[in-house]
Each structure stands twice: as structure tokens, then as C-alpha cells.
Design a protein around this nucleic acid. Structure first.
Lengths: 192, 192
DNA sequence: CATGATTGCAACGCAGTCGTTGGAAATGGG
DNA sequence: CCCATTTCCAACGACTGCGTTGCAATCATG
């Protein structure tokens, strides 16, 4: 056991992620992060520079991971349905990332950390959708970036406001029926 | 100028709403609320009992107002489109209520304050949608409560995550094109 | 193995924030 | 006009969290 800076940084980042996901920027304390990472507070200031900076770093490293890990490929309506299905499944498997996205939206009113990289990821998916539209396999009723954000809306809402889904439908957003409805809705939006 | 308890309570509640909307439960301080309401801290503890209780009270009194103020009436596809349009317009006119909804989702994992009243409001709208479906004017592809929550998803996402809409589309969620896409999407979901 | 540089940490000062309290000011009934 | 009651508030103690500092432990090098 010795001098492993990177591992320590990683432990801090993981602990910070867990705490920020659960309690947001103001709700978490540096001390709890330090305890969870089995590290001294001072390390956190030394490595990351303070709570807001650490929060931004968590967003930078984790949220992009979420956006990047569900791609759209293909050109037919069924592939849009599949895309929606994978989005919902991803949101279900990583509820922490959606919560981070929500904390982020509430914390930053104008620009978010590392915005240009995020824009680039979204742009790539939009292009794939646009190509499918050009093939005539998808509707042209929506501009590709609009279709993109509408699909994100359908797939993300349940993860963002699970309690609203529960109050409206009586079901958990994890429920099979809810998932199926989202997929069917995506199919309808994409059909020419 | 004299003894107006109710007015004082109201000022506190308004000030608390503004602060909680902006900073969430942990980000706001009782002292700022008191200053904003031109009131002494002690009044807040006396009337509302503490920060979490005041937060819950704000949610109780304000969020229901948001849910209740956009009704669905009618029986045709165009009325669903109109409903979606009014939802978006409402979200745009009262961004504070959506933010409260988001803070609420992040703060409470299981039950929210005054849940049964909220459920009742949602139920009424679901019934109106169900009636329209029974008329055959709307699709039966979705259970009415699913259609309901899908419409909420389309209309609410831009208000919840405006920065995502901006990154994906380059537009503000206030933009006319975005609004039009949401309405068209609602129309597509509702069409038989 | 001696020395300088790097990494780890316990303890501290400081700046709020919470929630309370003792008492002053305002009110209205007798 | 007086007294009990209600409303208001400035000041306080206790605590918590932030960010820093001084020092010890660990490593790399010659």
C-alpha cells in the first residue's frame, strides 16, 4: 500500500458522486465525502479545490458518460423504438445519472460545465436521426433535433419525476407497462 | 398597520417560495427568507415550525396550484393538442412551479406532501382523457393514464431541463419552434 | 542511508446557520 | 385606563461545515 494518487482521486470522485446524487450541491458536506472515501478533507481541497469545483468535476466526468452510452444507429422506425427502449433501460439502470442531470439543471441557469463536449455528443445522435430521415424511413414532420429532444423527453421524464409517474399512473417508472407505452409513443413520433 | 397574522404568513410563504425555487431545501436559509419577507426569523419557527416543514408547506400550497390550473376538456385530437399547448404555455409562464416539482422529486424519494390531493387532480384529468377515448375520438393505443403521463413528459421536459433542450436543439424551450414540435408530437400521440 | 520532495492527516480558526429566549410593543376587553 | 393576551424581535448559545496550517509519514534520488 503506497502512493497511489490516481486511486485516491478516483475514490474521492466516486464518493462525491454518490453524495451529490443523493443530496445535491448544498446538501452534501465535504466531510461526508471524505469519510466515505476514507480520505482526509484536505485531500479534497488539494486535488479538486473546493465543493463547487468538485461538483462541476463530477458532472463533467459522469454526465457525459450517460449521454454517450446510448447511441442511435439504423434508419427505420423500429430502430427509433429500440433507441427509446435502450434510453429507458439506461435511465432505469443508472438513476444516479438522471438525478445528476436534474441537480445540474437546478444549479446552473446558463452554461453547464464542459458544455461544448456535451453539445457535440448530442449533435452526433441528431445527425444519425437526420440521416434516417433523409432515407425516408422516418417522418419529416419534425426537424431531427426536435425529434431527438422529444424522444429524450419521453424516455427521461419517468426517471426525472418518478413520483409524478406514480401519482398519475399508479405505477413505478420501472414498470413494464410504462416502458412499453414510452416505446410505443416513440414509434408513433417516428413513423412517417 | 397592525395585527395582520394572515398577511404575515402569506409574505413568509411567498418569500420562502422564491428562495426554495431558486436554491432548494438546503440552499436556502431561514434568515434570507425572513429578510425577504420583512419579518423576524422567530416568526417563521413560530408559524411553520422549521425549514423542512416550511418547505413541505410551500410544496403543498404551490405545486397543486400548478397541476390544477391546466385542465383537459373536450374529446377530439385537436383538444389534446390544445391541452399540450396550454401545458407548455403554463410551464413557460410559471417556471418556478416546475422547479419546485424538480426539487420535490429530488428531496422526497417515496411519498410527497399532500400526495392524495395531487393524485386526485391527476385522476380527474385522466378521466377526461378516458372519456374522450371512449368516444372514439382519440387513440386507444394507450391506457388513458399512460397518454396523460406521456403528454406531461412532452410538455414538461423543456421546463425541467432547459439546458438539455438548448444543447440538443440550439433553441430556448421558450422558442416557438420547440413549442410547435411539442404540440405536433401530442397530436400524433393522440390520433387514433 | 541521507536528503529533499511529495503525500497524508489531525487540529484549528472562522463564518455562517439553526433554533430559542427574554422581554418589548401592540391590541382589545372589561 | 388598565391588564391579560397576542404579536413581534434583537440577541444569544450551540453547532456545523468550510477551508487552512503545521507537522508527520512516505517515497525517490544520489
Amino acid at each position: 500500500m503506497a502512493w497511489d494518487t490516481e486511486a485516491t482521486k478516483g475514490r474521492i470522485l466516486d464518493a462525491a458522486t454518490a453524495e451529490f446524487v443523493a443530496h445535491g450541491l448544498h446538501g452534501t458536506t465535504i466531510e461526508r465525502i471524505a469519510r466515505r472515501a476514507s480520505v482526509n478533507k484536505e485531500r479534497i481541497y488539494n486535488y479538486f479545490g473546493g465543493k463547487p469545483a468538485l461538483f462541476a468535476e463530477v458532472l463533467r466526468s459522469k454526465v457525459a458518460e450517460g449521454v454517450g452510452s446510448v447511441a442511435f444507429t439504423g434508419a427505420a422506425v423500429e430502430e427509433v423504438a429500440d433507441f427509446a427502449e435502450r434510453l429507458v433501460a439506461f435511465n432505469r439502470s443508472r438513476p444516479d445519472l438522471i438525478r445528476l442531470l436534474a441537480w445540474e439543471a437546478l444549479a446552473y441557469t446558463d452554461e453547464v460545465p464542459d458544455e461544448s463536449a456535451r453539445v457535440e455528443m448530442y449533435r452526433r445522435r441528431t445527425e444519425a436521426l437526420a440521416a434516417a430521415q433523409d432515407d425516408g424511413a422516418l417522418t419529416n414532420a419534425f426537424a431531427p433535433e426536435m425529434l431527438h429532444v422529444l424522444l429524450l423527453s419521453l424516455a427521461g421524464y419517468g426517471a426525472l419525476l418518478p413520483h409524478v409517474v406514480r401519482m398519475v399512473t399508479g405505477l413505478s417508472p420501472d414498470d413494464e407497462h410504462y416502458r412499453a407505452a414510452v416505446v410505443e409513443a416513440a414509434r408513433r413520433l417516428a413513423t412517417p
